[in-house]
Write a protein that binds this DNA or RNA. Structure first.
Length: 279
DNA sequence: CTCCTATCCTGCGAGC
DNA sequence: TGCTCGCAGGATAGGA
């Protein structure tokens, strides 16, 4: 079976890899025959009328903005967010699965399936030459030059919340989820509980750098596994075994080898840090 | 305005 | 073996 994005918990690197995988499916003439919906909604209703407009549309490319995938066609775009358990895959006959919610029938006979057990995902439509309300308040792409210490420090003015929560706030910077937030703060040696407004310039520079680094590294790693996705192995996991603090509570810190990794909830999300390295 | 809680949903693993 | 419970986390509405 051809899986694209069978991994759980998609953050920006995973979504980017799914984008690359989807784009690799496209030929010079890949068209949508029809979009078959097996239910009426995920968390939000499907725009069925708009989906009809995509019948016969030629898929030009797959873009990504934040954790959104954008199927760009000559008749408008299909917008997709994987939520936490969303996957796209090519599904052959008799490979249908429980929680397949949408099949996109392509002109070459293939079927693209959107599967999402928890239905936290989203499917929508963007008319030609229009933007989308979901994009209205998104912050800069973390890998772009628009995300830098000046922009970050500005966004943190008067923000008393924990820095870990703030870098997960899509209005401040997009794409950083719960896992990479802990990883980036560890790499930058910043305590996840630290109040955003207290971040000094030096720390902001370091944090920006480490966020970019941790995301880039994961994209590169995922890129190297993409042929495995395509070769029928299916779910390759979350580029895993490379996390330095996430999920490692109680283990010895890989950096200082002195302290045990701690775990606590910050705004209801599991957070991991080294009490020695991240004062 | 900022901050935080609850909510959506299913699968899975721990504990009994 | 089978049950319950808690946890997993992206995004957002709404309350404090």
């Amino acid at each position: 079976m051809f899986f694209i994005g069978g991994m759980t918990m998609p953050e920006l690197p995973e979504v980017e890899i799914v984008r690359q995988g989807l784009e690799s499916l496209l030929t010079d003439n890949t068209k949508i025959l029809k979009i078959e919906c097996l239910r009426a909604n995920l968390r939000e209703e499907f725009p069925l009328k708009d989906f009809k407009k995509l019948c016969g549309a030629k898929i030009i490319k797959i873009e990504r903005r934040a954790k959104y995938l954008i199927f760009v066609t000559d008749k408008g775009s299909l917008l997709s967010h994987l939520g936490m358990t969303g996957t796209w895959r090519i599904v052959l006959k008799d490979q249908e699965l429980k929680h397949d919610h949408v099949y996109i029938h392509l002109n070459d006979g293939r079927r693209l399936a959107y599967r999402d057990p928890r239905r936290f995902g989203y499917l929508g439509f963007i008319p030609l030459n229009k933007s989308h309300v979901k994009f209205a308040s998104l912050g800069p792409e973390p890998l772009s030059e628009d995300f830098n210490e000046i922009q970050l420090l500005k966004a943190l003015i008067n923000k008393k919340a924990a820095i870990k929560s703030l870098i997960m706030d899509q209005r401040i910077v997009v794409g950083v989820g719960n896992i990479y937030a802990s990883e980036a703060l560890f790499a930058a040696k910043i305590n996840p509980f630290q109040s955003g407004q207290d971040l000094e310039k030096k720390a902001a520079i370091k944090l920006v750098k480490e966020i970019k680094k941790v995301l880039k590294k994961s994209i590169d790693k995922g890129g190297s596994t993409i042929s495995d996705f395509a070769s029928a192995k299916g779910d390759k996991g979350y580029f895993q075994n490379s996390f330095k603090v996430y999920g490692r509570q109680g283990e010895l810190c890989m950096l200082c080898s002195k302290n045990l990794i701690k775990k606590a909830l910050i705004l209801g999300r599991s957070s991991f840090w080294c009490p020695g390295c991240q004062k």
